[in-house]
Simulated scan of single mutants.
Amino acid sequence: MYKLIAIDIDDTLINDQKEVTPATQQALEAAVAKGVVVTLATGRAYASAHKIARQTGLNVPIITYQGALVKNLLDEKVLYERYVPLVAARRLYEFCLERNLHLQTYIDDKLYTREDNQKIKDYTALNNTEYFVEPVFSKVIEQPTPKLLIIDEPEVLDELIPELRELLGSEVHITKSKPHFLEIMHHEGTKGHALAFLANHFGCDLSETIAIGDSWNDHEMLECAGLGIAMGNAIPDLKKLADYITTSNNEDGVKHAIDKFVLNV
């Protein structure tokens, strides 16, 4: 029997209208009523993720910033936190400055950008996030952050990945959450690390966990979960490593997965 389910938010739990449908909501509630821990695992900031978690009635710790922060919903106690190493953050900042790349970061759950441009406007429009412009970005870089993010064309980011891996070293984790978003965290700031932490926290084995996602930043948790489920709209590489492929986020894919593997209906 599965005891813990970790669900990605964007393009997984919510449909293209940014909604959790009533059918999916009922499935979540039925799983919780059966004694299963249902949590969210997202690249979003806690401030953004907790709104959706509360809307869906969840009251457990949630995984945010790709796994760099696990925080209780009830008392907002931090259970797991991994900051980007300062040396790596400084190197990344200098690199982006030289290449004129858009870099943004989160400090104390607030989003900061070096300049006000279309990239930050488009990014914040996705989940209605407030942002702050800090022209002297070196001040921001010196502060602890769970995640730094570069926004650019997918092919540009693909070329940057090997360069950044060499520049920043093994202490950081680099992943794409969406084609235009390249995210840099602590090497233990992955959804997989966070899922393993929560499984231990709730006293269950990883074989008793389910992970559901759609993007490459979900692959660590799908690989470490007892059952890794890719959405019907997931990227092909994620589908290849998944144990099961459900329907899309616009076809209540999360509900179908819960019905099949948790509620047995």
Rank of each mutant, 00 (worst) to 15 (best):
H201G: 07
T64E: 09
K77L: 01
R44S: 06
N249E: 09
H50C: 15
H186P: 13
E130S: 12
H180L: 15
D10R: 01
A6S: 05
T56K: 04
A68S: 15
L97C: 01
P162N: 05
I141V: 12
E115H: 14
K260R: 14
A33H: 01
I141G: 08
P146E: 00
D243A: 05
M185D: 10
N250R: 01
D237Q: 15
H219K: 09
E163S: 12
D243Y: 07
K191A: 07
L157I: 15
R82D: 03
A41H: 01
H180G: 03
G226V: 07
M231Q: 01
K71E: 00
I210V: 05
L206K: 00
S177A: 15
F132T: 13
R54V: 11
E163W: 06
T247W: 03
Y2N: 09
T113C: 14
K71N: 12
A211M: 10
A125T: 06
A30K: 15
E188A: 10
P236I: 10
A53N: 11
K239Q: 15
H173L: 05
F261D: 01
I63S: 13
L103F: 00
I63F: 08
H256A: 11
T175D: 10
Y46R: 05
I235N: 02
V265A: 00
A49D: 09
G203Y: 02
A68H: 05
Y244M: 13
H180S: 10
L101F: 05
I5F: 13
G169N: 06
S207T: 04
G192Q: 02
K71W: 00
E223Q: 12
L238W: 04
N100V: 05
D158V: 10
L13W: 02
T42C: 08
P236E: 13
I245L: 05
A53E: 10
F181I: 05
E98R: 13
V254L: 01
F137D: 08
G67W: 07
H50W: 03
V60G: 02
I14C: 03
D116T: 00
V37C: 03
D10Y: 08
L206R: 02
K176F: 00
L40H: 14
A68V: 10
S177P: 10
Q66D: 08
L157E: 04
P144C: 08
K3S: 04
I212L: 11
F132V: 02
Q143N: 14
Y93P: 09
R114T: 07
P22R: 11
E130A: 11
A33K: 15
K121D: 09
N264T: 01
T175E: 14
K139L: 08
A225H: 11
S138F: 04
H201N: 09
C96S: 10
M185K: 04
T42I: 14
K260A: 07
L58C: 11
L101Q: 04
K176M: 12
C224W: 02
T12N: 03
R44G: 08
E208P: 12
N264H: 14
R82Y: 07
I9R: 00
H201S: 01
